[in-house]
């Protein structure tokens, strides 16, 4: 770790500690907004861990999220809370493993299509199970957790996702992912087991998202399949991550804040127009911000340093030509 990284770590730690004080100031509107922001930051950053470098657009977020929520429905009252969260992570990873094994050795399109309907498939299966075998569709969740505790857990989870992303970027795994994102053929011929790397990352990403679902589940008190497996979550997460920029660890964070605030505002005042917002956001990203805000900032910075280095270097270049 160099000095810069130590500084960033320390600053992030302080920032997290500062944010953790929010419930002391307000227990109402701001805490609710804080919970929703923290949840989406964790999910979209986890999404981008896999989808950013590989460009495989995953729409399985709602499936992972719902899986986590249903772990709480089934275990929340009997098992200790940390165990519940671990089980949620394992279930999320398992689901990612199954979906990934069927699709990840094929093209990105196969993958998108498979994840497109995955949440809906699981919703149908759970509904079917509950109506035919499990008794009733929809269940109450009785877990004794306050909003502030949920908020703290989500903040901690955000920290964990960022740490994981940072560790991955420094490791062989991170390098492998970047190579896969650039050129899968080169990756395979350089000795990278591309299918295994993608699968592993997809599992990590799925596990984190499932834990978010589990942590948020007690807020509903009543859960039915159409709430837990709401495919809108998948699309929102994609938009936030891409809006911010999915190729940088901090990118999704930049996208989550404006989009969540805008979404809350619009769904509060014009509940029928959230679809139009989502649609416009997608078009905006594709046509005006293909690399996201983070990518745009980077581009501008690169252009500037480029101009500077060129100005500095031109005499040397001339010398080289003369030789």
């Amino acid at each position: 770790m160099n000095t810069r990284e130590v500084l960033i770590m320390a600053a992030s730690g302080l920032l997290l500690a500062g944010l953790a004080c929010l419930p002391l100031a307000d227990e109402g509107f701001w805490l609710t907004l804080g919970i929703s922001l923290a949840g989406y930051v964790a999910m979209s950053t986890a999404w981008a861990l896999f989808s950013g470098p590989t460009s495989y657009v995953s729409l399985a977020t709602a499936a992972f999220f719902g899986t986590g929520a249903y772990v709480v429905v089934n275990l929340g009252e009997t098992a200790p809370w940390p165990v519940v969260l671990v089980v949620a992570a394992v279930c999320g990873a398992l689901l990612a493993l199954l979906a990934g094994m069927a699709t990840l050795r094929l093209t990105g399109v196969h993958f998108v299509i498979f994840t497109f309907g995955l949440a809906e498939l699981i919703r149908q299966l759970v509904t079917w199970y509950q109506t035919n075998i499990g008794g009733a569709v929809g269940q109450y969740v009785f877990v004794d957790i306050s909003s502030a505790q949920i908020y703290w857990q989500l903040l901690a989870l955000c920290g964990l996702v960022f740490l994981a992303g940072w560790a991955i970027n420094r490791s062989r795994l991170g390098l492998a992912l970047r190579v896969i994102g650039d050129d899968e053929t080169v990756a395979a011929h350089s000795g990278i087991n591309t299918a295994r790397v993608k699968l592993l990352l997809f599992c990590i990403s799925g596990a984190f998202i499932a834990v978010v679902g589990a942590v948020l589940a007690p807020r509903w008190t009543y859960i039915e399949p159409s709430i837990a497996f709401n495919s809108m979550i998948s699309f929102q997460v994609v938009i936030m991550a891409l809006l911010g920029g999915s190729r940088r660890l901090w990118g999704p964070l930049v996208g989550v804040i404006p989009f969540t605030v805008l979404y809350e505002l619009i769904s509060g005042h014009f509940p029928n127009h959230t679809h139009l917002l989502l649609g416009t956001a997608f078009l905006l990203i594709v046509y005006f911000l293909p690399q996201g805000v983070a990518g745009r900032i980077e581009q501008l910075r690169l252009r500037r340093t480029h101009r500077e280095t060129h100005a500095a270097r031109s005499p040397a270049t001339l010398g080289e030509t003369a030789r």
């Binding site: 062989r172 190579v179 994102g181 053929t185 080169v186 990278i192």
Partner: peptide
């Protein structure tokens, strides 16, 4: 190890990182 008929370098990686790939994932 191989090179390709139409040159295939990794555009988002620096020259150094491109070459590191060979060593990191090689035998």
């Amino acid at each position: 190890a191989r090179t390709f008929q139409l040159v295939r370098v990794l555009p988002s990686l620096s020259a150094l990182e491109n070459v590191m790939v060979g060593a990191v994932f090689g035998p």
